[in-house]
Design a protein around this nucleic acid. Structure first.
Lengths: 169, 169
DNA sequence: GCCCAACGACTGCCTCAGCAACTATAGCGG
DNA sequence: CCGCTATAGTTGCTGAGGCAGTCGTTGGGC
């Protein structure tokens, strides 16, 4: 076992990316929790709120999050129980159903977002001068485009992609 | 609900970082799986292999991974069952025990690492010219240093930090 | 019009990981 | 020396999420 392997710059690079991600995730989670949300729930709320009619079919929601369809079923169960979401039958396809954000869900998101943006600013974007931030984002975009898993991809930076043309219905 | 909120550059920035992370994680996991390892197991193996004597106390291992101590107990259980690790009593403190990598564990790591490095190169570091990569890493380092959770931090980029001075024993 | 493959959602079962409670040990103060 | 508090590790319980199987629905081929 070559001890030097672990000093490989490639390992270091991955370490930086993963640690930055882990650190930010932790900060985000802490703030979400103040508003009674988990990271997944916040993401679900966000994806739905940015979609036309504040709704998305279960399958489309699964494609936009990193969840499987069964995972989505369960998150929506919980959030429906908590009054943040409702299910609505799809009139044109009786197999499908929509998850729709309720007024309470939108309000919860409204309460959470400002703090979320503040935290991003404080721990991420505000840590770098504009040029350095641009360089960082350019690099990330290149990597993101390369590994693009397809499923979760696109929506954040191309917010209308699948929202503008929801599959059928 | 202001639709434009979701086009906020801060949201976009986080989206890029998280999607890049998710994409790379998925690639890594797939390759680890080829060698019968999970991401967590690979990390445990790595942390132990880079430590003096290929061993670490359970608590120190927990501090270096993103696991709780009970999480470590269970990973070590599984990996011990699979022959990759052994527990060894700490002679100077009967409360403590070491997790030690076995020969089989080191061999498994040896089999896995080359492919892992190839994947990093292919999907991450190789996607950018050296200058852009440096800029990316500088930015990540700044963010990482800011959010540094303390627990998981340091070891990857300062590999000998806690390894050189294991708590007691 | 009928059949059948594909699809959307849901459920059972499993694994993983965290928290809190518990046990054993260590080390300090009196 | 005794007791008290802190620490290391493990375990019971819980929730999250994935896979595979199920059921109802759809739409295309004939």
């Amino acid at each position: 076992m070559n001890q030097n392997v672990f000093d490989d710059p490639r390992i270091t690079a991955v370490g930086l990316l993963f640690e930055a991600h882990a650190g930010l995730s932790a900060r985000f989670s802490a703030q979400f929790e103040e508003h009674g949300l988990s990271s997944v729930e916040f993401e679900v709320l966000t994806r739905l709120a940015r979609s036309p009619g504040n709704q998305l079919r279960m399958t489309d929601l699964a494609a936009q999050t990193s969840l499987s369809t069964s995972g989505v079923t369960r998150v929506v169960d919980r959030m429906e129980r908590d009054g943040l979401l409702t299910r609505r039958a799809c009139p044109s396809d009786r197999r499908s159903s929509y998850a729709v954000v309720t007024a309470a869900g939108l309000q919860r998101l409204d309460e959470t977002l400002p703090g979320h943006l503040r935290i991003i600013e404080q721990w991420f974007t505000g840590q770098l001068d504009p040029a350095a931030l641009d360089a960082l984002l350019d690099g990330l975009r290149r990597v993101r485009d390369a590994v693009h898993p397809g499923a979760t991809a696109g929506s954040t930076t191309l917010p209308v992609e699948s929202a503008a043309a929801p599959t059928g219905c």
